[in-house]
């Protein structure tokens, strides 16, 4: 698994000042003569209220100080912080706040890219990685909602049945390839990583959400795009 420093060195061919401070990755890197702002997490961070606010502060600083600069989110999270205190204080409000900061950045012309370089799980992935224009993942990254044994306990379905189903569908099992098939992850980044980042940056900012369409094209989500389009385009009632 890539550590964040090696990842940044390869993404920017060493030309970056990304640092780990107070549990948050931040800084900027240069690629092709262009500056890219970096925010992110490391060590499988559980994203609670405090961490969400620290990440949000970094996003807001980029929007204020570097208008229009592309933002790259480096994702390594085991999910949202599971604790009584975080729910008491409003983890949902803090995670939503982080999402709103990204949304405002997008509105103001910042291109948003995320890359899962280690692990992305459930609510943490939703709050940090999935709000990008496109989400990418390195080859050996892990993405999941829940591990199958836990899923088996909660759904009361036999583990063997879930494992069997995972051989034929992308819909429930862990794995980056599944999320690619669903259109949730745009593509898998393979070496050289700087070329992957450069290609992602070439795409225009502020595009529509194409994940459902991609999921249909790739065969991972057979219903979502069709349903969404039917609802969108349904004629006015008489």
């Amino acid at each position: 698994m890539l550590d964040w420093k090696t990842l940044c060195d390869r993404l920017f061919l060493g030309d970056h000042d990304v640092m780990l401070e107070d549990g948050v990755l931040h800084g900027s890197g240069n690629i092709g003569g262009r500056a890219v702002a970096v925010v992110g997490t490391t060590e499988h961070a559980a994203i609670g209220a405090q961490l969400a606010m620290k990440l949000a502060a970094r996003v807001l600083a980029v929007v204020r100080e570097h208008p229009g600069r592309p933002i790259l989110a480096l994702v390594d999270t085991q999910g949202q912080q599971l604790s009584r205190f975080d729910e008491l204080i409003g983890n949902n409000a803090c995670l939503a706040h982080l999402a709103k900061c990204f949304a405002v950045a997008r509105q103001r012309g910042h291109r948003l890219i995320s890359v899962v370089y280690s692990e992305a799980v459930s609510g943490g992935f939703l709050a940090l990685g999935m709000l990008a224009d496109e989400t990418y993942a390195v080859e050996d990254a892990q993405i999941r909602v829940m591990a199958l044994p836990a899923m088996s306990r909660v759904t009361k379905l036999p583990l063997e049945q879930l494992e069997e189903l995972c051989r034929t569908t992308s819909i429930l099992g862990p794995g980056v390839a599944n999320f690619v098939a669903l259109g949730c992850v745009e593509d898998i980044w393979q070496e050289p990583l700087d070329a992957c980042l450069a290609a992602a940056l070439e795409k225009p900012a502020g595009g529509a959400d194409r994940r459902a369409e991609l999921g249909a094209q790739r065969g991972g989500r057979i219903a979502a795009y069709d349903v969404t389009e039917r609802v969108r385009n349904c004629a006015q009632p008489a």
Binding site: F179, L182, C184, A212
Partner: peptide, 14 residues
């Protein structure tokens, strides 16, 4: 919905 977890999470992001 855990029975279609990956699609559910993606849909919530959408």
């Amino acid at each position: 919905r855990l029975h279609e977890a990956n699609a559910g999470l993606t849909a919530i992001s959408e």
